[in-house]
Write a protein that binds this DNA or RNA. Structure first.
Lengths: 217, 217
DNA sequence: TGCAATTTTGCAGGCACTGCAACGATAATG
DNA sequence: CATTATCGTTGCAGTGCCTGCAAAATTGCA
């Protein structure tokens, strides 16, 4: 009855290859510097042909950036909407973001976790890559806007009649939250990536609140 | 006594070429779609060799994106710091940003203005390019953070003793402002680029203020 | 085992971009 | 004006990213 069927050899090989490529890309980049690594090298290290590399990833960047998450977990979204009235909305969003910022769950073992850590160290050295990652989160952004819209609607049902304003407001809230994320990352990067990123996120969102009170001066 | 010396033939040719390339790049991209235009075509249209194209711009993107402004005008910065106590800081930043968002001055004629308009229309069709432009404003970001730091210091001299917090706070304010810009652009883009972009910017920053009051629920 | 579906690979080629060295035009000097 | 120095332009050769296509290898299934 589980829809989690034992994956065949094909599928297993597929994920293995994908992982091998990602690992190769990250390790090499961390070692020699992202710019100095060629796709051919990565393919070699991953034991596939260069052509196969591009069957798995559309670009060299994509391999090191990793899947841009398409959105937060549905359960988290539930919780977010639940808490509509009891919690500052920014706090809700912070929780939503932190859950898919610092990667993940036990579903795909600790191999993935290790990858993520390498990825973060690499982004620390190449701010360019972090920004690029932020930019490629278009899907996530859309979903966030939708979800935030719903919650804003709960807070102020009157907005139902003005979907345009609703949408704009939701978008702004999401963008501001992303500003919080960027700031958190910058803080974290400034101290060389020591400490927990989520801590920086919390501080960042706290300052966001404080900003609200000061800003109207 | 003016330090604006008549530029020689060399210099004049140089700016002409640069302009020709930019125009060619923008017009062709708007016409055939950015992805479908090659550097060779642009060079042809601008009557230079492909190699020369890269003497003027480091990449195809750079040609259509244009110079990322390095920062607001010094005078504007003056005014911004002047107004420290009399004006909400976000309003100050909004003025600072709008001045270099919707391009410019009379210094380099209306040719530049025309270019800028084409550029905006192009970015409307390729959101990717707008985001890229935002990302490449690293210099401007740094300067903004500096300036905002100064102003925050005026507001709360106690921060002098804690440069780290000061810096972080300033950075957050700048990032939030950029969120406002992104949102303004999105609004403007959603209505197909009709109306004035600066209007969207104003509405965006107004909502930013309103957000402040609502957010703490 | 034999057939169908899918994945891997090699190959040819396009496009972005770079360093280098020759060439050409402008500027500076006598 | 002639000479020389300076600086921009160009062609060329080459690297690297990326794609489409078709053959070969692998896996799934009867």
């Amino acid at each position: 009855m589980t829809d989690v069927k034992e994956p065949g050899l094909r599928e297993r090989k597929r994920v293995a290859t994908r992982l091998a490529i990602e690992r190769a890309a990250l390790d090499l980049s961390l070692d020699k510097g992202y710019e100095n690594v060629t796709v051919d090298e990565i393919a070699d290290a991953a034991d596939v042909s260069p052509r196969t590399f591009f069957n798995y990833f559309p670009s060299k960047e994509a391999a090191v950036i990793g899947h841009a998450p398409e959105g937060p977990d549905p359960e988290k979204i539930e919780a977010f909407l639940e808490a509509s009235a009891k919690q500052p909305i920014l706090d809700g969003i912070r929780d939503l973001l932190s859950s898919f910022l610092d990667a993940k769950s036990d579903e795909d073992a600790r191999a993935t976790h290790q990858l993520q850590e390498t990825r973060m160290r690499l982004m620390l050295q190449n701010p360019h890559l972090f920004r690029q990652r932020m930019e490629t989160m278009e899907d996530a952004t859309k979903k966030m806007i939708e979800v935030v819209s719903k919650r804003l609607l709960v807070l102020d049902p009157a907005l139902e009649s003005d979907p345009t304003t609703l949408r704009e407001r939701a978008r702004l809230v999401v963008f501001v939250s992303f500003a919080g994320v960027r700031n958190a990352w910058a803080s974290w990067a400034e101290r060389g990536g020591s400490g927990r990123l989520t801590e920086c996120l919390e501080r960042s969102f706290e300052q966001l609140h404080q900003l609200s009170s000061q800003v109207n001066v």
